[in-house]
Design a protein around this nucleic acid. Structure first.
Lengths: 340, 340
DNA sequence: TCGGGGGATGGGAGCGCTCCCAGCTCCTGC
DNA sequence: GCAGGAGCTGGGAGCGCTCCCATCCCCCGA
């Protein structure tokens, strides 16, 4: 039915040339008010939209940015982290009139087939890439292809010029201080895997927060793998050394830790206080309500997307590494009055 | 630095013409083994990738499919539903070599600006669209533009030729039967909003499941809005009529309902049994562990994407409405032995 | 021996846009 | 009064690909 309208046709209907229509569509100056009005009228009537492929072929810009989420996507999708991140990114792209292409891969085979497609086919103007673990090969690919990119998370080396991260370290310090302020003395730590910068920052932040006041964990540490089950096992081990408060470096692991406490016949926060990290669980989902360090995931996504746009259109100055503040949200599991 | 390679250039390096290279790249027949080998060698060496925009301009196909999630995206992202759905869709698109463009909008203003862009700019070959509420205008837009589309969920009228849904009704019937089998007699229902087909199906399924055996809910019904808080308030109301078992039509609302039971000083499942719907929460997240009707969200996404591809390449026969089975997962909250 | 058919190949045309230059008009300043 | 510039407009060229037709060659059968 509706054969495609094009610039030439719109021009014919408005009594101007293809070029003038193009100028109107792209909001360029140097078009007479009269011509502009007529063209806009015709566009309105016909519902004309410029053809994305033609535009990007001619201009070498696509108006599409990619969001690359590599490795272990399926486990990570069990918590709302990526949902929030995507929401933040789309918030930014929607308001800037660009489109988001989503590249998820779990298996390395997918990675090998997708990355070249992303990078060399000219399909996107740039990408936001999540850095899940150290030594990720994706970044190297992007760099070699001169593709603009922004890393979500703290890059583990100097290869990334632009990044946006939450203040994992500061949040963990705040958690440590809070527990110390509550008067807990036998502090424990369920640490995240040390193959991620987020994990390292949360662990070091907590330990540094304690040593600021001359405390330590005295061996009361277990490492989890972000999963709920690993949190449960870690807490079960940890209970042997009778901690009175434990910082669990992610909410998912904290949920498992709470279960372990319950299973041991103990009570949180009376026997063991718990502070989590992420602040992504709906408030009431755990019993007791979990005190947690809230990281602004959606805002990280939004800032990353905006920074990427700046990089693409050349308005980004030098290297830029944004760190957004985290905040301790006190609820019940830490035993503080605020949540009682 | 690396100026773009094109077909002509690859052809020159391999000693053949642009056309022959194109045939090799697209896997067409009628290319000599020798020519094919040489071209593939050059492509391998140079890392050449066809330019997506040029290809789609010439062929009128983009290799991109859209996933449109309209309305209330931000609240819905609090649970893992959309994460799982996206995962299913990307699983399918990855394996089929297409790219996923994600269109999320919360505000109507976004909707009005994005839909025309999706539909008329030739940016995607087709879309998977989630039907969150009845009378959604998005579907009408797609239909008028002759854009291939597949609906996730049960469309509420005849305008959609293709859809993929979970068996909400069957799952709710199974929940009803299970509770009846357990010997509960004062059954209650926390229903979803009736402006969605999923909500209607879950409510009607439960009621029909009861009336099959001559039971009813005798007024023990409250309507929630999918949120945790609405589940809590609904259960609080419902407890006045002293139900011994309640079907809560979503896990998020069930979490709120469990909290209301606890807050009333009652115990689940001893005083009130609960069955949820969705099966998306990590197993241990609730106390007690929630018995729930599991819907195969990722598989719904995957089937929708595959069906869309069939529609796009014309291999889909007539209208097709896929309904995937749901399954009752018995854990603790229903009081059945399996979970104890 | 020669004609015909099919596989292999090359190149023209054109997809709808942007970029750029040329040309026209009108206005300003000396 | 005239040169020069600024504002506006039109159209050629070309982005890298696909589609299609023309050509060539080789092999087969009469």
């Amino acid at each position: 039915m509706s054969q495609r309208l094009n610039l030439e046709e719109i021009g014919r209907l408005a009594g101007v040339s293809r070029s003038t229509v193009s100028r109107v569509v792209n909001g360029e100056p140097n078009v007479s008010a009269e011509a502009k009005r007529r063209v806009e009228e015709v566009i309105q009537e016909t519902g004309y939209r410029p053809h994305a492929a033609a535009r990007s072929l001619a201009s070498n810009r696509t108006g599409v940015v990619g969001l690359v989420i590599a490795s272990a996507a399926s486990t990570l999708f069990d918590d709302p982290y990526f949902g929030r991140l995507i929401l933040g990114v789309t918030g930014a792209t929607n308001s800037m009139g660009t489109t988001l292409a989503l590249f998820l891969f779990d298996q390395e085979s997918d990675e090998h087939s997708i990355i070249p497609r992303v990078v060399n086919s000219g399909m996107v103007d740039g990408v936001v890439v999540t850095a899940t673990h150290t030594g990720d090969p994706v970044i190297e690919h992007l760099r070699r292809a001169d593709m603009p990119f922004v890393v979500v998370g703290r890059p583990d080396d100097g290869r990334a010029r632009y990044s946006v991260d939450a203040d994992n370290r500061g949040g963990a310090v705040a958690a440590a201080r809070h527990l110390v302020d509550q008067g807990y003395e036998r502090l424990g730590l369920i640490a995240p895997p040390s193959n991620s910068t987020a994990g390292i920052d949360r662990r070091d932040g907590f330990l540094d927060g304690l040593s600021e006041v001359g405390l330590g964990i005295d061996g009361r540490m277990q490492e989890g793998d972000w999963s709920e089950e690993s949190g449960r096992l870690a807490m079960r081990e940890l209970l042997a050394s009778e901690p009175d408060a434990v910082f669990v470096a992610s909410d998912r692991m904290a949920v498992g830790a709470l279960r372990a406490i319950r299973e041991a016949g103990l009570s949180c926060p009376d026997d063991v206080a718990v502070v989590g990290f992420d602040g992504l669980l709906p408030a009431d989902q755990t019993v007791p309500r979990l005190t947690s360090v809230v990281q602004p995931v959606a805002e990280v996504g939004e800032r990353a997307a905006r920074l990427l746009h700046a990089v693409i259109d050349g308005s980004a100055a030098g290297p830029e590494h944004v760190v957004l503040p985290t905040e301790l949200l006190v609820r019940e599991s830490c035993g503080a009055e605020a949540g009682r």
